[in-house]
């Protein structure tokens, strides 16, 4: 589903953000991508979303290779990969429903089908009651739910979450993680970047991939495979 083969990313003036990283995330998997700030988690997320291109190596998302995909076809990858962020990136001045509807509208959902589908997506993330509230009136946890509903708009195969609980309190963090597990239980792969090892420790069933200074230093899948 997602395959990184010897991927490096070098930025001008900043040096390497990723060095020679190879990993694979399979269909229906739940994985944490951990590491300190600057370890390369966000870069990995951006590369999988193909918001950025690797300096070397190849990324393959559901058959779309970073080596061959054209600028014109990038939208196809982005509909396969839903993405949420620490700062939510919702459109201000619009309601929760309008934010989700916007994603549906710009990706070509028939106009008549949009209200029902947006309501359904918000209901799936447990957010139906406040759907008509402006995003500025929502708490961090609520905003993250709206952002997740938006990320699910195209029924992606994988959900990328870049420090999604970074701005949330413990209660909201726990609720968002539960939501991710619910989404994962329906068959969607979830790759969540976080530096919070305590949070990761609360989910022993998840795979843990650790980056340090742009290098892959451990992967619980490989370790388990090694012990068996």
């Amino acid at each position: 589903m997602i395959k990184l083969t010897r991927v490096s990313k070098e930025y001008p003036h900043r040096g390497y953000a990723l060095r020679d990283v190879s990993l694979r995330v399979n269909k229906g998997e739940f994985a944490f991508l951990t590491g300190h700030s600057g370890s390369g988690k966000s870069t990995t997320m951006r590369l999988i979303h193909m918001s950025d291109r690797p300096s070397s190596g190849e990324i393959n998302v559901d058959g779309y290779s970073s080596d061959h995909i054209t600028q014109r076809d990038l939208w196809k990858v982005r509909r396969l990969v839903g993405m949420v962020f620490q700062d939510f990136r919702l459109l201000p001045g619009r309601t929760a429903l309008e934010n989700v509807a916007f994603a549906l509208e710009v990706t070509g959902t028939p106009r008549k089908a949009i209200p029902a589908r947006a309501n359904l997506l918000l209901a799936q993330v447990g957010f139906a009651p406040k759907k008509d509230a402006l995003v500025e009136q929502l708490s961090g946890g609520e905003r993250q739910r709206v952002a997740i509903a938006r990320a699910l708009a195209n029924e992606p195969d994988i959900l990328l979450a870049d420090e999604p609980t970074g701005n949330l309190d413990d209660q909201a963090t726990s609720e968002i993680l539960d939501l991710f597990w619910d989404i994962n239980a329906k068959g969607m792969a979830v790759l969540m970047a976080t530096h919070d090892l305590e949070l990761v420790g609360r989910h022993p069933n998840a795979r843990i991939i650790e980056l340090d200074q742009g290098r892959l230093v451990s992967d619980s899948n490989i370790m388990q495979a090694g012990t068996h």
Binding site: H49, R78, R79, L91, A103, V106
Partner: peptide, 17 residues
């Protein structure tokens, strides 16, 4: 710019943007 960012994020085609 924020709308354009979200459009690209969710996979809107360039022509649509």
């Amino acid at each position: 710019r924020e709308e354009i960012y979200v459009m690209r994020l969710v996979g809107a085609r360039n022509g649509f943007i």
